[in-house]
C-alpha cells in the first residue's frame, strides 16, 4: 500500500502538484498557524543548505574550477552511467511493475516488499550485497569470471549495475502505481477485439502509462546521478572509469573544499535543469 501511495505522490509531484484535490476549506479562513509554522520551517530546512552552497561558491575562480579536464570527465561519466542505468531499469523494471500490478500470484506482497528494499537499504550495504553477488568471488560473479572472464567490480559496467540497483525501485513503484490506477478494461477491450496479451500491453497499456513511466524514469535517473555509497563500494574509484561526480565531490572535499563546492554546484544545476525540462515537456501532458 505504502509503495503505491509513494509512487502516486511522486508522480503527482512531478506532474506539478495535485490541482484536483484542492478542497474548499469549510471552517476558518487562511492557513492555521500550527501548520504554517512547521511548514515554513520545513521549507527553510530544505532550501537553506542549497542557498548556503550558492553563497559559498567561489564565483571568482569558478570558470577554472569547472573547465578542468577531471570535472568534465566525471560529469560525462555520471551522465552516461545514470542514463544507461535508467535505460536498464526501464527495460527490466516496467515488465516487473506490470507483473506486480496485473498478475495475481502467491507471495506478491512479499515480492513487492523485496523490490522496494533497495529504497531503504543503506547504499553501502547495497554495494556490499552487489559484491557478494557479482564480485569476483560472488555467487554469480565467480561463474562470470571463470566462464567468460568478466569481472564487474572496478569497471564502468559496475557503476551502471550499482546505480540501476538503487534506482530501479523508484521506477518500479512509480510505474506499478500508475498501472494500478489505469483502467484494465481498456486492455480487456483490446483483447476482446483480438489483440494478444502482449499486443494489448504494447499498444494500449504502454501509451496509457507513459506519464508514469516518464516520472519514474526521472526519479530513477536523479537517484542514479547522485549515487555514491553503492558505487564506491562496488565499482571503486578511478578517474574516467568509475569516478562519478558524487565520488569526485567527496574526494575533492578532502583537500580542496572550493573545488567540491564547484562540483556540487554543477550537479545541482544539472539536476534542476533536467527536472525542470522534463516537467515542462512530459509531465504536464499527463
Amino acid at each position: 500500500m505504502i509503495p503505491n501511495d509513494k509512487a502516486d505522490a511522486a508522480t503527482e509531484t512531478l506532474r506539478g502538484g495535485t490541482r484536483r484535490r484542492r478542497v474548499r476549506s469549510g471552517g476558518g479562513r487562511g492557513v492555521p498557524l500550527p501548520l504554517l509554522l512547521p511548514a515554513l520551517l520545513g521549507l527553510a530546512f530544505l532550501i537553506v543548505p542549497l542557498i548556503a552552497l550558492l553563497v559559498r561558491t567561489p564565483w571568482h575562480n569558478l570558470p577554472e574550477q569547472l573547465t578542468s579536464a577531471e570535472v568534465w570527465q566525471a560529469l560525462k561519466l555520471s551522465l552516461f552511467c545514470a542514463t544507461l542505468a535508467t535505460a536498464v531499469s526501464m527495460v527490466i523494471g516496467v515488465p516487473l511493475a506490470w507483473l506486480l500490478a496485473r498478475v495475481e500470484f502467491p507471495g506478491r506482497g512479499l515480492i513487492r516488499a523485496l523490490v522496494t528494499l533497495p529504497l531503504v537499504l543503506p547504499p553501502v550495504v547495497g554495494g556490499v550485497a552487489l559484491l557478494m553477488a557479482f564480485g569476483r568471488n560472488g555467487i554469480i560473479g565467480q561463474w562470470l569470471d571463470s566462464w567468460f572472464g568478466i569481472t564487474l567490480p572496478f569497471t564502468t559496467t559496475g557503476v551502471v549495475i550499482a546505480e540501476a540497483f538503487v534506482a530501479m525501485p523508484f521506477l518500479v513503484i512509480s510505474v506499478e502505481g500508475t498501472l494500478r490506477a489505469a483502467d484494465p478494461r481498456y486492455e480487456e477491450a483490446a483483447m476482446t477485439l483480438g489483440a494478444s496479451k502482449f499486443t494489448a500491453f504494447r499498444r494500449v497499456t504502454l501509451p496509457l502509462i507513459a506519464p508514469g513511466i516518464a516520472a519514474g524514469a526521472v526519479l530513477a535517473w536523479a537517484r542514479a546521478l547522485g549515487e555514491f555509497g553503492a558505487t564506491i563500494t562496488f565499482a571503486g574509484n578511478f578517474p574516467g572509469r568509475t569516478q562519478t561526480m558524487p565520488l569526485a565531490v567527496y574526494l575533492a572535499l578532502q583537500s580542496d573544499p572550493e573545488a567540491a563546492i564547484a562540483l556540487s554546484l554543477v550537479l545541482l544545476a544539472v539536476s534542476i535543469a533536467v527536472l525542470a525540462g522534463l516537467r515542462d515537456r512530459w509531465m504536464t501532458a499527463g
Partner: peptide
C-alpha cells in the same frame, strides 16, 4: 591501480 579507495580500511 584499479581503484583509488577513499580510506585505508576500504
Amino acid at each position: 591501480p584499479v581503484s583509488y579507495e577513499q580510506d585505508v580500511k576500504a
